[in-house]
């Protein structure tokens, strides 16, 4: 379970999060919606431990552990996965090598047995098939020369192989056509289980047609200002974010 209490964070002198309260129980998918500049991406980076974001107050725990004190890799080992809004290109780093290194690092941290190259490839190919992705995705350098859609699919592939307990999807729908959106959504839905939870950050309702959330929260000016069921997303789609601060 992810529990965020009164979380504040700033970039430099600028306060972005001003007391976020949010609880995501295991097995649930929560959506965070909100206008540009509300702090959505900041929340995802603070939870995954990116440098340059200073936590100025509050707490965030995952399964009872204070995640804010952990390095990014320790958070990954703890089961938190961030699907990037803009996945980073790694020229010269093969995708298969990258994912296997990551998987084994996580396994090592958890005290599990590592996979050799053959076992990994078998696993990865099976997952590619599940996700209707071509095999050559593994041969290419990480995200180099990938289209926007391919990059997002690569994020989903990594997520499928790393099997996180909590996935944070940061505007994963941005720049996706409808086919890619469907593949990404199927990937997330396939992971649904009582042990899996997700925080889906999005500006639009569109993604939530495919990944139906249990709860929807509105983040505005660094705070959760409203929470509700899936119907809240539809309401926001119809009426926009105007006036949500006052709500």
């Amino acid at each position: 379970m992810l529990e965020i209490k009164n979380l504040s964070a700033s970039i430099g002198d600028k306060e972005i999060l001003r007391g976020v309260d949010l609880t995501v129980p295991d097995g649930e998918i929560h959506a965070i919606m909100g206008p540009n500049g509300a702090g959505k991406s900041t929340l995802s980076y603070v939870l995954s431990g990116r440098e340059g974001y200073e936590v100025t107050g509050g707490s965030a725990t995952y399964n009872g552990e204070n995640i804010l004190a952990l390095t990014p890799e320790a958070r990954a080992a703890a089961g938190i996965f961030l699907a990037f809004q803009y996945p980073v290109e790694l020229p010269g780093v093969g995708n298969a090598n990258f994912i296997r290194t990551a998987l084994n690092a996580v396994k090592r941290a958890r005290g599990e047995a590592e996979l050799d190259a053959v076992a990994f490839l078998k696993l990865a190919r099976a997952e590619l098939k599940n996700l209707s992705m071509p095999d050559d995705m593994l041969k290419r350098n990480v995200n180099v020369g990938f289209s926007g859609g391919e990059k997002k699919r690569n994020e989903v592939l990594q997520m499928a192989l790393l099997r996180p307990g909590l996935a944070i999807l940061d505007e994963t729908d941005s720049g996706l056509d409808i086919d890619a959106l469907k593949i990404v959504s199927d990937g997330v839905n396939a992971l649904r289980s009582p042990k899996f939870s997700a925080l889906v950050i999005t500006h639009y309702q569109r993604l939530l047609d495919h990944i139906v959330p249990d709860r929807v929260h509105v983040l505005s000016a660094g705070r959760i200002v409203r929470s509700g069921g899936p119907e809240l997303a539809l309401e926001l789609e119809a009426h926009g974010y105007v006036g949500q601060e006052a709500a």
Partner: peptide, 28 residues
């Protein structure tokens, strides 16, 4: 690139190993 290091670390790869991977990729 700190972005690249963070990306690798967010996938569970320790910082030292992330740096080594990026340097080897740089040399490829």
């Amino acid at each position: 690139d700190p972005e690249q290091i963070f990306y690798l670390r967010s996938r569970g790869i320790p910082e030292d190993q992330a740096r080594a991977m990026l340097i080897r990729a740089f040399l490829t």
